[in-house]
């Protein structure tokens, strides 16, 4: 199963589109909650639809919370999508009594009350111009479906930003760990390239 991308089974996430995107990039994938498979896979994707509390409960139940923490701490490839990105954080306003994976030193907050939630549709994503992150992942337009987000770039992470009632962090990267608040698998060719570059750069 060395070259098979393991997609973490969070129970409620719809991962068909991610699987199709991987297949287009000539990567096989498997949906799993087996911690051995997740620990040993070359590439792991943490998808996520649903609430922060339900998502974390699922990861604790399957024993995967520690597996993911160990992977990221060892610098092994992980791509977190949408709620998956939020689960990497310390905590979330969505489920105040639940601790996140704590890998991303940030707190997840609801969008400003002046904007309609969920943010549902296409919005612009751009990293700092001229940054290495921006050169690798050029600006584009991404499909979002979220009510919560990180407001500020965590120290020591590369960040890309989007404006929705104020600037928020729509993607982060550090080493082999990449996370997007948007859905790269639904963001056309530009989004597909995010998955493709992560797969190649971390091989």
């Amino acid at each position: 199963m060395r070259n098979v991308v393991q997609i973490i089974d969070t129970g409620v996430a719809n991962v068909r589109s991610i699987q199709v995107a991987l297949r287009r990039l000539s990567f096989e994938s498997n949906i799993s909650r087996d911690s051995n498979l997740i620990a040993n896979a070359k590439h792991v994707i943490l998808p996520g639809v649903g609430s922060f509390g339900t998502g974390m409960a699922g990861l604790h139940e399957s024993g995967l919370a520690e597996t993911i923490q160990q992977r990221v701490e060892c610098g092994r490839p992980l791509f977190a999508v949408c709620l998956g990105m939020q689960l990497l954080c310390l905590e979330s306003e969505e489920s105040p009594d639940v601790l996140g994976l704590g890998l991303l030193p940030a707190k997840v907050q609801r969008f400003d009350t002046s904007v309609q939630v969920p943010q549902l549709g296409w919005n612009e994503v751009a990293a700092e111009p001229e940054s290495d992150f921006s050169k690798e992942f050029p600006p584009g337009v991404a499909y979002f479906a979220n009510s919560f987000r990180i407001a500020d770039c965590p120290p020591d992470w590369d960040c890309a930003y989007t404006d929705y009632g104020g600037r928020f962090v729509s993607a982060v990267r550090r080493g082999n760990c990449l996370a997007c608040q948007f859905h790269p698998e639904l963001s056309g060719e530009w989004g597909q390239a995010w998955i493709g570059k992560w797969l190649v750069s971390t091989c």
Binding site: S114, V115, Q116, Q119, G121, N123, V141, F144, G165
Partner: peptide
């Protein structure tokens, strides 16, 4: 009306 949705691309 709440803003936000009007900031997104027209689909």
């Amino acid at each position: 009306k709440m803003a936000g949705v009007d900031m997104l691309k027209k689909r």
